[in-house]
Design a protein around this nucleic acid. Sequence first.
RNA 1: GCCCGGGUGGCGAAACGGCAGACGCAGGGGUCUUAAAAACCCCAGUCCGCAAGGGCGUGCGGGUUCGAGUCCCGCCCCGGGCACCA
Length: 812
Amino acid sequence: MSDTPSAPVPAPYDPATLEPRIQRQWAEQGTNQARLDDPARKFYALMMFPYPSAEGLHVGNLFAFTGSDISARYHRLLGYDVFQPLGYDAFGIHSENYALKVGAHPMELTPRNVANFQRQLERAGLMVDWRQKVDTSRPDYYRWTQWVFLRLLERGLAYKKQAAVNWCPSCKTVLANEQVEDGACERCGAAVAQRELEQWFFRISAYAERLLANLDWLDWSAITKQAQRNWIGRSEGAQLEFAVAGHDARVTVFTTRPDTIFGATYLVLAPEHPLVGAITTAAQRAAVEAYQARTRQQDLVTRKTTREKTGAFTGAYATNPATGAPIPVWIADYVLMEYGTGAIMAVPGHDARDFDFAQAFGLPVARVVAAPGEAPDAPLAEAFEDDAGGRLVNSGPFDGLPVAEAKGAVTAWLAERGAGRAVVNYRLHDWCISRQRYWGPPIPVVYCDGCGTVPVPEAQLPVALPFLADFKPDDSGVSPLARDAAWFRVPCPRCGAEARRETDVSDTFLDSAWYFLRYPSATDAGAPFDGARTRAWLPVDSYIGGNEHAVLHLLYSRFITMVLHDMGHLAFEEPFTRFRAHGMIIREGAKMSKSKGNVINPDQYMDQWGVDAFRMYLMFLGPYEEGGDFRDQGISGVRRFLDRVWASVRDATAEGAADPAVARKLHRTIKKVGEDTATLGYNTAIAAMMEYVNVLRRGERAPHRHEVRPLVQLVAPYAPHLAEGCWALLGETGSVFDAGWPAFDPAQLVDDEVELVVQVNGKVRGKLRVPAGVAEGEALALALADPGVARFVDGAPKKVIFVPRRLLNLVV
RNA sequence: GCCCGGGUGGCGAAACGGCAGACGCAGGGGUCUUAAAAACCCCAGUCCGCAAGGGCGUGCGGGUUCGAGUCCCGCCCCGGGCACCA
């Protein structure tokens, strides 16, 4: 045996003991707490807060959170004061339905689910400042959600109107469009009908242009911005007026094709259009009313997806302002009341829907646009919709004009005759925030016979959600809250007379439309968001979340922020400076779902491999912004890497000469990991660190201390517990997260000697080791002297392409 | 139908217009071991060939270029979102 003293037993990497120890240390030392009051260089890192489902944390949640956490930790290492909060989106129909299903009460169930989530999230080792946690279902939060509602009411942006909803007569509840499948309720299968209810709306449509315009400068994922642009749906066109024969009434239509006015052979109103009753002739009244009734019976989804054309003739005729011809006025459910003016001019020759309708009811089809070389009276077998190369025909003074020019010219011509004007229309409709349900913040309004609609005074907030043993909706279409008489009857805040509370609760999207404002002030009982804190921390520097919220949540948050800005409550009008959408995790090529039984339980993997290995594997699966495919076998590779990092640190010696090749690799790795981490290129950053460790440990080489110390810093955002443990192992004091980010030496990035690829006619025929600065002539001489290259070259090359440091291509 | 993504080894995936397949999984061979595991080292797109070497290769068909996974045109397939929006 050797006579050297036996070395101490080397400590293996053991995440099961290391991770809890490090987490205790972080908690004791307040490592994850932000300097909320006096940040020097603030960085607000936000991730979309979860809905605390009873099933517990989903691997998709953890994928999202880990990606945000890495970014947050990286910024901390760069020297920012990072604030990364998290909370719970705990209100909503989801929780309520689940409670109904299992026969529990949401007030009891929700805290339990939240506690379970909290346990799982804490275990995941996120750098979250838990002091600032929010829970939207708690009165100390929704009190301020109600405050936000009152601000919109004050500003004239909240209003009530009748609106059609999907109604399931069996579940006795309003259904969202997503909950209707083939005209039936997704839960019970009963046929869904329309029902008109008085609902609260927010006038987001008034902000359409601003919400659209700001997208141009926001640093957001391109796909997210595009989704918002599509949703806002700006379209330029004209409103045109049609006089109705024998009536004072004029029908206003919206069209994007005013150029086709000469081809408008009939008008169609939405069945619920207010003019229908007035213009319908006695002879047609029965048919029209039957059709209206039939439309009301239909659910909203079926109405919008059925292509078959139905309708009824009103008996009335309108005058085409361009041709002077009388044209019939119909009603049909393919015209929607909520878009444009709820009425259209039908141009069957140039609109596929109008064409189908005209075919179904034998209405005339006229051609007013022709393709180049096409006869003005060429018959139309289908609608000719192409407006790119077409020119007008059969259009009086406008014949021959290209469509693009005709749009403006026709609009101007009609405007002169008082029959129209250019308008911009948006698809974005107002936000219905009413929910006739239980589990949400009561809308803080009181109805008084004398005073009308009275906002609940701020001092009386919150309007607390009462405990209702029976919170099941009934077929009244009114929220269960109406059944709690003690709660419902309330003195009018203005005159003191007996009055009634609003019984609708608000949409969960309202809870989440302002939660990022609350985090820095989460414990503030006196205001929704403290002025100084808000100035110090907002807007959010980095927001990461799923693109399923590209439209609603993100748009509503922008809207609420704009309104609060306009009212002087906020200094900025866009809440999220940078937004990145992460991808989706699938498993073995298939979407995860409970029914397939392939849902990943994070706890089990964290038990087996450690938290760090699990998070790092999630990040290694593929590009963060695209998602990845979770395969059980793959995680061992990441774990092996962490073992090797640990062993490298443990075996590092303080003395000895550096290996210049290792040093060069280190500096390249620092550069690469920094760049990739900044751009969310986590998978390639991890690969780069693996490459470095492969070089570092080649042949069981014992690394030097200064070769591993920066590695620990690089790996820290990815495997924070391991890095913290390694940092201590290196004898460093304090947290690695206060140690800064290593710098690379640019001089170390350039090699003295490079491998030059030699191609002949684009095919690789040889490789040369040459000095980095070798000249073209010299490289050519060396290449021609190479027998492998010379075989393919006969005589002098016709052309030589030389890319310094990379390649030499000889064309022969 | 429209709008995005994406199609690369056995698998997950890399690749400023310049060596396709980095990194990892699975696989094969080896070192160590009585043995196995672990660890470490090496091999590994595919076809022909004992080898040296060569041919072919990034969904399909064209094009631009000295050179194309990457750029352009036309298709096919998969995933996601929107969808009677006038």
